Computed example of a mutant assay.
Amino acid sequence: MAAISLPLGFQIAPAPLGGVPGPSVPAPLGVLANFSGTFNGLGLNTIFRPNSGPLNTTTFPRDNVLELNLINDTITFSQSLGAVPNRGLALQDDIFLNGVSYIQVVNDVTNLKTGRADGAPTGIHFEAGLWMNVPATNNTPVLGDSLVRMGSIPHGTTINAECLAPTSDSPGPPEIPLVSLVPFSVLDGKPLQPGQLENLNASIVSTLRLPNDLSKFVAAGTINQEILDDPNSVLRNAIKWQNIMKTTAFTVSTKPPPPEFGGGTRNIAFLEGNPASTKPNANAIQMNATFWIETVQHRLEVPIFKVGQAPMKLSPASPLGQPAPVFLVSPPHAINAPKNITVTSLQIQYSQVVFFGIR
């Protein structure tokens, strides 16, 4: 499991060299206060990746391979950073940001023999970065509270993704939209016809898809036509049995819509292909990611307990095999017969789309 820690007592603040002092307490975290500790769960990764080979064998539609991964995803957040000073010029006051650093580790757990997410783990993604809460400003720029995710991955891409901070929660579960895997032309932006790509047909054994044969996954319900048509159905199916009390949602983007601005992606030379990026191998040009922070209500059965007994670690049932939260329970009095109690936990779901330029 990934781990991240800061030196004991580490907090960013203005250096004590005179001038305007910083705040006496850490700057606000806003919704990022929910990003604490470690979150782990199962999910799905998809990527149309470049297909290398002789030009006469890798022209469209054989210029790409659709890779599908059943994954185990772990994100670990550090303690907050404190009060990060950003200096304003002239009439713009100084501001103080706060945030958390994070490490994300994703393992492929696809099992070709069972069609389930119970295979030996193979690392396919590592990301280190920061989530920061940026306070509102009324001069340069005139902008409300905002969030920024800054991340870097070992393939050679860095991102700076932003959005305005959410201002309210929504009761109940999230409304997770449909999303399509169908790629689009870099020339006119029009999506291809689904029938043009055999790798999006779950019933076809395709050499342009990994795994080639999805029959065991279809039988297990882990990858089927519904999921190829709408990968976000994985998220909806994972929570349909849960009692979600409230949801906070936000979408960060490297090309955020107005009034937000800034952000972007940068890639190493190999990914861009040439100085003009006209022959990219896999040039990451945009990233959008929606996060849903959900408060989930659970029912726990507390077994017989004697005063003085060590605290118990209890987890609610998880019908779909997803990792379940662990509660440390230490009743203040004896429990002479099993008893049901109601508790809540926090969970994070996200859907991320990265646009690659491939020619």
Score class of each variant (00 low, 15 high):
V25I: 08
I204M: 10
A3L: 05
Q193E: 13
A238I: 00
A27V: 05
Q347N: 13
T38C: 04
N237W: 05
V186T: 11
T290N: 07
A324S: 15
P61I: 05
R266H: 02
N45H: 13
D230G: 03
P258N: 08
C163H: 02
S315H: 04
I227T: 11
I227Q: 08
K190P: 00
N111K: 09
S206K: 06
T114P: 11
S168M: 12
L8A: 11
F270K: 05
P166F: 05
N111G: 08
N199W: 08
F270H: 01
A269M: 08
G151A: 14
P177T: 02
R116M: 15
I71P: 03
L29I: 06
L89K: 12
L143P: 08
G195F: 13
P177D: 07
K190C: 02
I348Y: 07
N160M: 04
S24K: 12
S206H: 08
T251S: 10
T140Y: 10
I204D: 02
F261D: 13
P14H: 02
T290L: 06
P177L: 12
D230T: 04
Q309P: 01
G189A: 09
L68N: 05
P316H: 13
V353D: 05
H155R: 14
G18N: 10
G82D: 02
K306V: 11
G144S: 13
A284H: 10
L147F: 07
L328T: 15
G273S: 08
L32P: 00
T248K: 12
F39N: 03
P316M: 14
P16I: 03
D63C: 10
S345K: 08
Q349A: 04
G115H: 12
H125L: 15
I239A: 04
K113E: 14
T58Q: 09
L70V: 02
Q242N: 02
I358Y: 05
H125W: 14
G18H: 07
R116P: 01
Q309A: 15
A202T: 03
N201M: 06
P50C: 11
I124V: 15
N45Y: 11
K313T: 11
P166D: 04
P50I: 10
T38K: 12
T278F: 10
T295G: 00
N111V: 05
S351G: 09
F60I: 04
F305C: 10
L6E: 00
P191F: 04
I176R: 07
L271T: 01
E162I: 13
F327S: 02
I95S: 15
G264F: 11
A136I: 01
T76L: 08
A2D: 05
A269E: 07
P28Q: 04
A128K: 09
N281T: 09
N274Y: 04
S52N: 08
V109M: 13
A27D: 03
S203W: 02
T114S: 15
